[in-house]
Design a protein around this nucleic acid. Structure first.
Length: 721
DNA sequence: GAGCTGTTCTTTTTT
DNA sequence: AGAACAGCTC
């Protein structure tokens, strides 16, 4: 009996926790925030809490909402729970997920979404889609809206002002007249933006609470969970806070973990530190997790210099390995030295996967990639590939979205306007989809391919057809497997399952691995790397990770290099105090990713505008005795090429530098004109421009194929959209 | 619509 | 520091 009552407390997982972690797990205050220092076992506590509530307090998992900021974090929590208790079903963890996905699930199942103006069949909009819709409405209603190129930002930033009844936008234009039109149009087309998911569910939850209060019948709990657990609470924004408050209702308990010292995304939300805002809003008790298990003593002593909210980080390790600081002539030389350092580390037994390089700007990865590729170092760039990056699948998703939501006229127009894909029957097929095949319980990929006449729509004569077909079939097969299973288990039809599939893929960025690397979209380096290193072994020994400081959050590595610690880059040129504080937290996040070795470097000649050839001021904030200036002395900065390595090596480097600069320039030029140019011909009708030089133009026309024209004849009219 | 002046923003990225 | 834009003048 006692064993049953204290199931989790008797496990090894619980016994291994330190006293602070145990206190957090066992706390049952109505609201509690845990100020969790970097590397202090935040997720372990969250998992422990869930297990404690479930096993010892007998709270069903279904009565818990576990809210995270990213999908990755949500997956990790469920994965770690299943490691402890493998029989947890996906039904039990319905309330586990990102704020947005939990809101979506509630809108689809338990909240009266009709009262807000949508139907249960609504779909989720892509983030860019709302801006496109806004532009259409601006044109349609002849509104005067300034800064259209920044419309997305403006729509977000000024929404609150409009809501609170302000008369006019700060730019004195028609933006505030746009909001109601946009809201109305989204209801008409039965779709919600990401922000709508939170706003609408928050509104409906609030209405429910009011009803519960006035009716006095206590059905609190039908919708509201018994416990709400929040991960990385410092990253939430105002919308998420309000959702949290509405979800809590009258009696749910709140347990939130977070680290106010790791706020690095406030530039896209509000300025306030959500950790303290939430503490005050809920009158929460504050606990701390002070002990760091990750980094060596030098790194933690340095990290303590960058803490902004009290609390010292307590370490667990004593070894005196120092932080290395290096100075290089420029980014090329730095990359070259880094490549050599990494190869040496690798030869001495460190696997590539234990090493990471962090930088402030995405653009800094380019030189590293080139140099690492030349040295044959396997690396992995942390940029997520989504379906949107594969044109044919991006188009296919739109086709599916219209098929499961025919009132989405914006998407229907986008599909039919697509300059590359599409056929004549597509429009009516999308419209009649549910009627024709969507009501069946199961549909095959082949049937869908035939139904939408995709062979035709993907243009069998085009060069990319084989690859497009493979991608499409692959995707459809995965989708059908998932949707047929879903339709069967829920007793619903295929249309409903596809709707759910495209909705969650909008929120999930398509983890169905249709966007994974394939030989077709692998870079030459990756293919080459797989050849020389032997695919499997590369996967086992790993790849060096290249990422921005932002992307490094939540990760840890044995060895970390942070490059470009120059004044104006780290920290980036800031215009106000809050921004500079955030840069400091960003640097803090970066250095605390390292377990054993940390190397910081700056260049004498950064070659970036706004960046000064001086060490960033954060280097001076680290106590001198923790630093090791390595063999590039502190004062004597290397002024030229590769220094003592001899003339041959020097010219080699110069050549590489020129080569890489040329490649970067070419790539930038190509990136500047990525859009498809549409043309018209008297006889062939509308087509797309394939290539052009001083004299000739080549264009492709539906039904006629590729045709070449002499520019001088002026037969081709360029269509501007 | 060219030419001028003044203002705002630039990076980081998840859902 | 410099690009992109708004709004003004001629």
């Amino acid at each position: 009996m006692n064993e049953q009552l204290n199931g989790f407390q008797q496990t090894e997982e619980f016994q291994n926790l330190n006293e602070y972690q145990k206190a957090a797990v066992l706390d049952e205050s109505p609201a509690c925030v845990v100020n969790a220092n970097v590397g202090s076992g935040k997720t372990t506590v969250l998992i422990g809490k869930i297990m404690y509530l479930y096993l010892d307090r007998k709270i069903p998992l279904e009565k818990m909402a576990v809210l995270t900021f990213t999908n990755k974090a949500a997956d990790e929590i469920v994965e770690r729970l299943r490691k402890i208790k493998p029989d947890i079903t996906s039904e039990q963890v319905q309330g586990f997920g990102t704020f947005h996905s939990v809101a979506l699930r509630m809108l689809k199942s338990s909240l009266p979404v009709e009262k807000a103006g949508w139907t249960k069949e609504f779909t989720v909009m892509d983030p860019d889609e709302e801006t496109d819709l806004a532009l259409e409405l601006i044109a349609e209603h002849g509104l005067k809206v300034k800064y259209k190129n920044r419309l997305k930002k403006r729509l977000e930033q000024e929404y609150q002002n409009w809501l609170s009844g302000k008369e006019e936008s700060r730019y004195r234009d028609d933006l505030f007249r746009l909001y109601p039109l946009l809201a109305e149009e989204k209801k008409k087309q039965n779709k919600m933006s990401f922000a709508d998911l939170l706003r609408v569910s928050t509104d409906l939850l609030r209405t429910e609470i009011r009803k519960e209060q006035s009716c006095e019948e206590n059905n609190n709990g039908r919708i509201h969970p018994a416990w709400i657990l929040v991960d990385e609470v410092q990253d939430s924004d105002v919308l998420q806070l309000e959702f949290l408050e509405a979800l809590r209702g009258e009696s749910a308990k709140i347990f939130a973990v977070g680290d106010p010292n790791q706020v690095i995304y406030s530039w896209r939300g509000t300025g306030d530190n959500m950790f303290f805002l939430i503490k005050h809003r809920f009158g929460a008790k504050e606990l701390t997790l002070p002990v760091n298990y990750r980094s060596n003593a030098s790194i933690l002593t340095a990290a303590n210099r960058f803490l902004q909210f009290g609390n010292r980080i307590q370490g667990t390790r004593n070894e005196e390995r120092r932080i290395v600081v290096r100075n290089y002539y420029d980014p090329f030389q730095e990359a070259e030295y880094l490549a050599e350092r990494i190869q040496t580390l690798h030869r001495n037994g460190k696997s590539y996967g234990e090493i990471a390089v962090f930088y402030r700007l995405q653009s800094q990865s380019e030189i590293l990639e080139k140099v690492f590729a030349r040295h044959g170092i396997p690396y992995e760039l942390s940029v997520k590939k989504t379906l949107k990056d594969i044109p044919v699948l991006n188009w296919l998703i739109k086709v599916l979205r219209v098929s499961v939501n025919p009132s989405d006229t914006q998407m229907a127009a986008a599909v039919l306007k697509d300059p590359v894909y599409g056929g004549k029957n597509l429009s009516c097929r999308m419209e009649r989809f549910t009627e024709d095949i969507g009501k069946r319980p199961a549909v095959t990929a082949g049937e869908l391919f035939a139904y939408f006449e995709l062979r035709d729509a993907l243009h069998p004569s085009s060069a990319g057809y084989a690859e497009d077909e493979r991608l499409v079939m692959d995707f459809l097969e995965k989708m059908c497997t998932s949707c047929n299973k879903e339709a069967q288990s829920s007793g619903g039809n295929f249309t409903g399952a596809v709707r759910e599939f495209v909705n969650s893929s909008a929120l999930y960025g398509m983890k169905t691995d249709a966007g994974e690397k394939t030989p077709g979209n692998m870079s030459a380096h990756e293919v080459a790397g797989a050849d020389t290193d032997g695919g499997e072994r590369t996967a086992a020994t790993g790849r060096v990770k290249l990422m921005t400081l932002h992307a490094s959050k939540g990760l840890e590595f044995d060895t970390v290099f942070i490059i470009g610690v120059n004044q104006g880059l780290i920290p980036l040129r800031c215009k106000n105090f809050e921004q500079e504080e955030e840069e400091r937290r960003l640097f803090f996040v970066g250095i605390t990713r390292a377990e054993n070795d940390l190397e910081l470097s700056w260049y004498t000649n950064p070659g970036e505008r706004g960046v000064i050839g001086e060490p960033g001021r954060y280097l001076r904030m680290i106590p001198e005795q923790l630093l090791d200036y390595g063999n590039t002395g502190k004062q004597e900065s290397v002024r030229s090429g590769a220094g003592t390595d001899g003339a041959g090596r020097k010219s080699d480097l110069r050549q590489l530098r020129r080569q890489v600069q040329d490649q970067i320039r070419l790539k930038r030029e190509a990136a500047q004109k990525p859009e498809i140019v549409r043309v018209r011909h008297r006889k062939y009708g509308e087509g797309i421009l394939v290539s052009e030089d001083e004299m000739m133009m080549e264009a492709k026309f539906e039904g006629y194929g590729r045709k070449q024209f002499l520019k001088a004849f002026g037969e081709i009219e360029i269509l501007h959209s």
